[in-house]
Deep mutational scan, measured.
Amino acid sequence: TTYKLILNGKTLKGETTTEAVDAETAERVFKEYAKKNGVDGEWTYDDATKTFTVTE
């Protein structure tokens, strides 16, 4: 399944996708990605669109 991440950081904005077996796995991948890019904020997930959003 393809999951999407929307980054709404103070200095970094953008989108990325990952293939994962479930939302929990995708969330771990995306949180590591955000951490590596210095983005830390509020996380939300929309199951209907398989989209995570992190907003600083």
Rank of each mutant, 00 (worst) to 15 (best):
E19A: 08
G9I: 08
K31T: 05
E19D: 11
A34K: 01
T44F: 11
L12S: 09
K13P: 05
V29I: 11
R28F: 11
T11V: 13
E42M: 13
K31C: 04
T55M: 06
K4M: 07
T44V: 10
A34C: 07
D40C: 09
K10I: 12
T17R: 07
F30Y: 02
G9M: 11
K36G: 07
E32Y: 07
K36C: 07
K10H: 15
E42H: 13
T18F: 12
K50F: 11
G14S: 15
T51W: 02
K50D: 03
T44G: 06
K50A: 06
V39F: 11
E32R: 08
G14C: 08
Y33P: 00
F52V: 01
A34R: 01
K50H: 12
E15S: 12
D22M: 04
Y45D: 00
K4D: 02
Y33Q: 03
E32C: 06
T1A: 14
E19R: 08
T16L: 15
E15W: 13
V21Y: 14
E56Y: 10
L5M: 06
T1E: 15
E27T: 05
T49C: 04
E15F: 12
I6C: 05
D40A: 12
A48T: 11
G14D: 08
G41C: 02
L12H: 15
E32H: 09
E42R: 11
T16A: 15
E27N: 06
A23S: 10
I6W: 04
G41H: 02
K36F: 11
E15T: 11
T11G: 10
E15L: 09
V21R: 07
R28C: 06
Y45F: 07
A23R: 15
V21P: 15
T51Q: 04
W43H: 01
L12M: 14
D46Q: 05
E27I: 09
A26C: 02
Y3G: 00
A20G: 04
V29P: 01
G14Y: 10
T25W: 08
A48V: 12
D47W: 08
E15G: 07
T16P: 02
D40F: 13
T25H: 15
W43A: 01
K10Q: 14
E27K: 10
N8E: 08
K4A: 05
T1P: 09
K36Q: 10
T49R: 07
K31Y: 07
D47I: 12
I6L: 09
N8S: 09
T53G: 03
G14Q: 13
D22L: 04
T17K: 07
G38S: 06
T2S: 09
N37R: 12
L12D: 05
T17Q: 10
D47R: 05
K35F: 15
R28D: 05
V29R: 10
T1Y: 14
G9T: 13
V54E: 01
V39T: 04
Y33G: 01
F30D: 00
K31P: 00
F52Q: 00
A23L: 15
E32S: 10
T16H: 15
V39I: 12
T1L: 11
Y33I: 05
G41Q: 02
V54A: 03
L12V: 15
E24A: 12
T53L: 05
T18Y: 14
K31F: 06
Y3N: 00
D46G: 02
T11K: 07
T53P: 00
D46W: 04
N8W: 13
L5I: 03
D22C: 04
V54W: 03
Y3E: 00
E56L: 07
T25N: 11
V29F: 15
L7C: 05
W43N: 00
V21A: 12
V54D: 01
T55D: 07
A26V: 03
T1N: 09
T11F: 13
W43C: 02
G14K: 14
V29G: 04
E27M: 14
Y45M: 02
K50S: 05
D46I: 05
I6R: 06
K10C: 11
Y33K: 02
W43P: 01
T2N: 07
A20I: 03
T44Y: 10
N37I: 14
G9W: 05
T17N: 07
D40T: 12
L5K: 00
G9H: 07
L7V: 10
W43F: 04
L7H: 04
Y45H: 02
T2D: 04
T53S: 07
G41D: 02
A48Q: 14
L5Q: 00
E27R: 13
V21I: 12
V54C: 06
V39W: 10
T2W: 14
G9S: 09
V21D: 13
Y33L: 05
W43I: 03
L7T: 05
T51S: 05
T16E: 06
D40G: 10
G9C: 06
T51I: 06
A23T: 12
V54R: 01
E19C: 09
A48F: 12
